[in-house]
């Protein structure tokens, strides 16, 4: 299952969902879907979000083995 730190990093950078969405070219709702794990973003969107937080993409998204 895909895990992510989008919510944590967004709070650290002081972005609202809408602001982050605007910066990476998606709606606020899509950022919400990603944070909740309802939706796995494309590689392009993952790279854009990682770039906003200035970290490698594998520190933002990672796979957690299902038990």
């Amino acid at each position: 299952m895909l895990q992510n730190r989008v919510k944590e990093l967004r709070a650290r950078f002081g972005f609202s969902q809408g602001e982050l969405g605007e910066r990476v070219g998606v709606t606020r709702q899509t950022i919400g879907f990603i944070e909740k794990g309802d939706f796995s973003p494309s590689i392009t969107l993952s790279l854009k979000i990682a770039r906003e937080f200035q970290i490698p993409v594998d520190q933002l998204f990672w796979l957690e083995e299902e038990k």
């Binding site: 070219g25 998606v26 709606t27 899509t30 950022i31 879907f33 990603i34 939706f39 494309s42």
Partner: peptide, 9 residues
């Protein structure tokens, strides 16, 4: 279809 999240739903 505004973005990939909307395409998803």
């Amino acid at each position: 279809e505004q973005d990939e999240g909307m395409v998803h739903i």
